[in-house]
Design a protein around this nucleic acid. Structure first.
Lengths: 234, 234
DNA sequence: TCAATAGTGTCTGTTAGACATTATGGA
DNA sequence: TCCATAATGTCTAACAGACACTATTGA
């Protein structure tokens, strides 16, 4: 009996044309929503078409290396956090169009300017210009990925300086999660999670009572039964 | 002032050698852990090296199409659920080794045999043979992805026939989550989520009181404030 | 004094997990 | 009768969200 042909162990000679797309997100000053960095292609025929920063990987480069390079190229600096979102594939073969895109999200601290102000711009999600359908899908998936992960990893702290007020921290969480939080519950959850510790410094915003500064200082928790959870608004 | 060179808008001409790896998971009969389908390469020089079912995408095929084809090739049938895990990249270029792998998880109902019993085998996670480091990483990521998603999507129901007992459902959840659940809390959470409805049939397992059969019947919930959550064991 | 923001204490309804109990079949 | 499994009721501690209140600054 002849062995049936297997799809399983054939040498992998086919290639996707591969690109890395990077969704850079920042909490813009004085706003309550996230902003995405979009760039205008330099090709004059497509200057009204905003796209995500992207590039094809160079040889000797893994996808994450390429994403860091793309982010640095667009920002002039490395984002505070960079994580893969997913791979987005396409069966159609269009000339010049990437077949496979590996998408990354990067979080950028408060108020960092884009490297190329003439071609790149922070645009608020919710007020995005028309994008190619797949780029739109990538942005949405990136925002969802951040919202899923912000409770489980210290993403929010990377967007703040080493000392911060709890109101600033809450504002970052609200922007990342896209919803208002209840102040007392937020602080209670922070205490239960032992994520921050107070410093002996205070900061006055000009009006209102000065706020104590805290620093990120996660402690091993014996009893943390659930992740930090908080709901609804103040 | 000359415009600085941009990494942002260069045509994407470079390619990764691309593969699709598929992690097929099943709740094996009479066991409390998941099992992964591994295959032995047909290449006689590597017959002691277990690998995940995989292939390179064909032209005109998206990554998901390729994953479905690989899964059907290994199982003889389509898995009950198939979702992307992530892309796994590698900067090194080894001859014959894929640079970029898009990994998928597939869930396979209870007790389905592999298509090629001489070369493929269900092996329990936790008792896996030695795998290449990246394959190991892919398996771990696939299991984690299932555990993250099982609360948010009806994955568990796809592994059961249309009518099932609540004990069977709980067993599937326990296997997918990798931990025991509290019976009363599990049923309370099910009621709150309005995911199932009773049929008028009962099934006797031979000993003990017969169990009522239920079917998956999700209802729009006005009040479902959180996902279905349950912790600890019975 | 008021406005504005920071920070805290207490109450209440909900719920997860523990525990106990009843129900129903086979041996 | 005993055992095994199904199914449900009740209790309690923990907790999320609501609410109210005090504290501290500048105008």
């Amino acid at each position: 009996m002849r062995e049936r042909s297997l799809v399983l162990s054939r040498p992998g000679v086919r290639s996707f044309t591969t690109a890395v797309d990077v969704v850079l997100l920042t909490p813009p000053p004085r706003e309550r929503t996230l902003a995405v960095l979009l760039v205008r292609p330099t090709d004059p025929r497509a200057r009204d078409r905003w796209v995500l920063p992207w590039d094809a990987p160079q040889s000797g480069e893994g996808p994450e290396d390429a994403a860091i390079r793309v982010a640095r190229g667009a920002l002039g600096t490395t984002p505070a956090a960079l994580e893969q979102v997913a791979a987005f594939g396409d069966a159609r073969r269009h000339p010049g169009e990437a077949q496979l895109s590996v998408a990354f999200v990067g979080l950028v601290p408060y108020g960092l300017d884009a490297n190329h102000p003439t071609t790149a711009e922070w645009m608020e999600i919710g007020e995005l210009p028309q994008l190619a359908p797949r780029q739109r899908e990538i942005v949405d998936a990136a925002v969802s990925a951040v919202r899923r992960r912000v409770d489980q990893s210290p993403l929010a702290f990377r967007l703040l300086p080493s000392a911060f007020t709890l109101s600033e921290l809450q504002a970052i969480y609200e922007i990342l999660l896209g919803r208002r939080l209840h102040k007392a519950s937020f602080r209670r959850a922070l205490r239960a999670a032992s994520l921050v510790e107070p410093t002996d410094e205070w900061r006055s915003e000009g009006r209102g009572r000065p706020a104590q500064l805290f620093r990120y200082a996660p402690r091993r928790r014996r009893g943390l039964r659930r992740g930090v959870r908080f709901d609804l608004y103040d």
